[in-house]
């Protein structure tokens, strides 16, 4: 059984189709990235999974249960929306104690101490949340979402509003939770770099349909023509080397960028031939690196056509 299962999910509002036959699964302990432009239907999917909205067609299950009708199953799931679910007029510890009461957390004082330390807010535990910065509220929101040790946690843009240091802390925390507590993480994010770093699989939603669903490794590797970056010991020779490379039969294209020469090969196995050709032409090669496409490339590749005429 998967941690999250979505099959043939559709939903419309006021005659407008928001989701159309959406299907994907998320395995236990996986960090899953759910990507898509604003208005693609990501929030609707998550709301249906959490039992907040009813599906128009199809089904959505978390831990094999329908959260709309299963109060006990909701106790095994954590959630962080854009709003952190905190009261500004209560202290950090008070907010966590409230949710600990709702979830029936055992020994809440110890758990609250542990989490406040984890998100670096132990010294602000008695301060009103209204006095916190956006980033501090976000970190406390994450602590709240995992307070009851959920098996699956839904995080909506967890690092929004955070400085780079705090973003890294959140990334590390998510990876740690997945690894140490085998927590399944469902990540809604526009930070493609963040998703590429920590997610094991992703689904790209655009125009209400799933445009891609695969492991990050497979998506970024399955790029068609391989791209190789060549750095010369003397960058001044790059223009001449480019002319040389462009004549090679196994090269589909060659461009210069800040890192060196970006060569697209028509033959995936031609990297050694490229190096041999450059050395043979007396160029001193400093570095040759096989480049894979970034998740951003893949995202834009799938989203742009869908945005144009989904």
């Amino acid at each position: 059984m998967n941690a999250v299962e979505v099959r043939g999910l559709s939903r419309s509002f006021d005659g407008r189709d928001i989701l159309r036959d959406v299907s994907f699964t998320v395995g236990h302990g996986e960090i899953f990235g759910y990507l898509g432009p604003n208005g693609a239907g990501k929030t609707t999917t998550v709301r249906i999974l959490l039992g907040l909205l009813a599906p128009g067609a199809g089904e959505a299950r978390v831990l094999g249960r329908d959260l709309a009708v299963d109060d006990d199953a909701r106790a095994r799931v954590g959630v962080l929306f854009e709003n952190n679910g905190l009261s500004d007029r209560m202290s950090a510890a008070g907010n966590l104690a409230y949710y600990a009461g709702l979830y029936g957390v055992e020994d809440p004082a110890e758990r609250i101490d542990e989490l406040l330390t984890l998100v670096d807010l132990a010294d602000r535990r008695n301060d009103l949340v209204g006095t916190f910065s956006t980033g501090m509220k976000r970190k406390l929101g994450i602590a709240r979402a995992i307070l009851h040790r959920p098996e699956v946690v839904f995080l909506d843009e967890p690092s929004s509003g955070l400085d780079p240091g705090a973003q890294r802390m959140v990334r590390d925390l998510i990876s740690e939770l997945s690894r140490r507590e085998e927590m399944t993480v469902f990540l809604n994010s526009h930070h493609l770099d963040e998703v590429q770093r920590i997610c094991s699989s992703v689904a790209i939603l655009a125009g209400g349909r799933i445009r891609a669903f695969d492991s990050v490794a497979h998506l970024t590797a399955a790029s068609g023509r391989p791209v190789v970056t060549v750095a010369l010991a003397d960058p001044g020779e790059s223009a001449r080397a480019r002319e040389e490379i462009a004549r090679l039969p196994f090269v589909a294209g060659c461009e210069m960028n800040g890192e060196g020469l970006l060569c697209t090969l028509s033959d995936p196995g031609a990297t050694p031939d490229l190096i041999a050709a450059l050395v043979g032409a007396n160029f001193r090669v400093e570095e040759v690196r096989r480049s894979s496409r970034s998740l951003e490339d893949i995202y834009l590749e799938h989203v742009a056509p869908a945005e144009g005429g989904a």
Partner: peptide
């Protein structure tokens, strides 16, 4: 208004 209710609706409380 501030959306906190959405988080509360995801707790095990009816």
């Amino acid at each position: 208004r501030d959306g906190t209710i959405e988080t509360l609706l995801c707790t095990p409380v009816s």
